[in-house]
Structure formats: structure tokens, C-alpha cells
Computed example of a mutant assay.
Amino acid sequence: MPRYEYRVVPAPEKGKKAKGAKGTSGRFAVALQDLMNEMGAAGWEYQRTDTLPCQERVGLTGRQTTFQHMLVFRRTLAAEAVSDEEVTALLAAPEDEPEADALEEPETAEEPADPQPEKRDAVAAARDVAAALSARAREGKAPALGPATQGDKPGSKADVAAE
């Protein structure tokens, strides 16, 4: 089963001037088209647009609910992704106990060290993600949405409107 990572970006709020784009709807379409082409070039596939409520502070003690329009993109993860069994084992393992495999030293000099260091790195990354998700769940918070790494962010404000 393929695994995906998701990226959620705000929809453009203003249109872009372009040759042949007339009126508000034409300029907005150009801004949306540019954003979608930019994300597609980076390997992200458009999934849907969602409108979600967001509480904002107003003044010192007030709160106001606004609605944010978000574009959802996804892309397939690399083949080195962690398997379902490994994720289940990581979630079932207590967080404060170190991994038994990490503490073991090779018993003899003839035994090879670690034939798959990339897989071990993927398992460690999955353990970190699982720990973060578990901590957020204990606090009663939903998982954070957005880019997986800082390197996925667009280069400038002109690339993605309102980011």
C-alpha cells in the first residue's frame, strides 16, 4: 500500500495581474493556477480545497471564529518508508526505554555492523514522529498539519500568496 505525505497551504487571497486575465475572477484564477503549477513541479498532487474554522484573538480577551481556505496536496513517500509492523511496534514500545538493538554491540569481530543504516534512520525518524503524535494526543490536541520539513517551504512570499 503506498504511503503519502500531505502539505496544506493557504489558498491565495488576491489575484495576480497577467496578460489576458481580466476582472477579479480571472486574476484569482491566475494566482491559483500559479500556486498549483508550482506545487505540481515540486512533486505535490492536488487533492482538495477545505474551508476550516479557526479561532483568533480579538482585543485582550475576545475571540472570533474565522474560516480559512486551505489547499491540500499529497505526494508518495519513498520506498524506504517504515512498514506497518514497525510503526505498530514503535507505538507499542514504551517511550522511556531505549531500543534494545541500539544498545547491543556485535559479539564478535566477524559479525557485520549494520547492513542497512538508512532503514535504521527511517525507524528512528518514525519513532520521533510517533512520540510527538502521542504527546499531542495526551494533551488533547490534533496532529499538526503542514510541511514535514523546513526545506519544503516556498522560497519567497511571491511564490505562495498569504504565507
Rank of each mutant, 00 (worst) to 15 (best):
P53Y: 03
P53Q: 04
C54Q: 15
C54K: 15
C54F: 14
Q55K: 14
Q55L: 13
R57K: 15
V58D: 09
V58Y: 06
G59T: 01
L60V: 14
L60G: 08
T61E: 11
T61D: 10
T61I: 13
R63T: 13
Q64K: 14
Q64N: 11
Q64F: 00
T66V: 15
T66I: 14
T66S: 13
Q68W: 15
Q68F: 08
Q68V: 09
M70G: 02
M70F: 13
L71D: 01
V72F: 10
F73P: 00
R75L: 04
T76M: 12
L77P: 04
L77E: 03
L77W: 02
L77F: 07
A78D: 14
A78T: 10
A78K: 06
A78R: 09
A79V: 09
A79W: 08
A79Y: 07
A79G: 07
A81K: 00
A81V: 12
A81E: 00
V82G: 07
S83N: 03
S83L: 04
S83Y: 00
D84C: 03
E85F: 01
E86G: 07
V87K: 01
V87L: 10
V87M: 13
T88D: 14
A89H: 01
A89T: 05
L90H: 00
L90N: 00
L91S: 04
A92I: 01
A93R: 15
A93P: 06
A93K: 15
A93E: 09
A93Y: 07
P94W: 01
P94Q: 03
P94R: 05
E95D: 11
E95K: 13
E95L: 06
D96F: 13
D96L: 09
E97Y: 15
E97Q: 14
E97S: 07
P98L: 05
E99F: 08
E99D: 15
A100M: 02
A100E: 07
D101F: 05
A102S: 12
L103R: 12
E105Q: 15
E105T: 14
E107P: 11
T108G: 13
E110I: 01
E111I: 04
E111C: 02
E111M: 05
P112Y: 07
A113C: 06
A113N: 06
A113P: 00
D114T: 10
D114V: 12
P115A: 11
P117L: 02
E118C: 06
E118I: 06
E118D: 11
E118L: 09
K119L: 09
K119W: 03
R120H: 03
R120G: 01
D121N: 12
A122S: 06
V123F: 01
V123T: 07
A124S: 10
A125S: 13
A125C: 05
A126I: 05
A126M: 11
R127K: 11
R127V: 00
A130F: 07
A130I: 02
A130Y: 11
S134Q: 15
A135H: 10
R136D: 02
A137R: 04
A137N: 02
E139A: 14
G140W: 03
G140Y: 01
G140M: 03
K141V: 00
A142L: 11
A142M: 08
A142C: 04
P143R: 06
P143Y: 05
L145A: 11
L145M: 11
G146D: 04
P147G: 09
A148W: 07
A148V: 09
T149H: 10
Q150C: 09
Q150D: 12
G151P: 03
G151A: 12
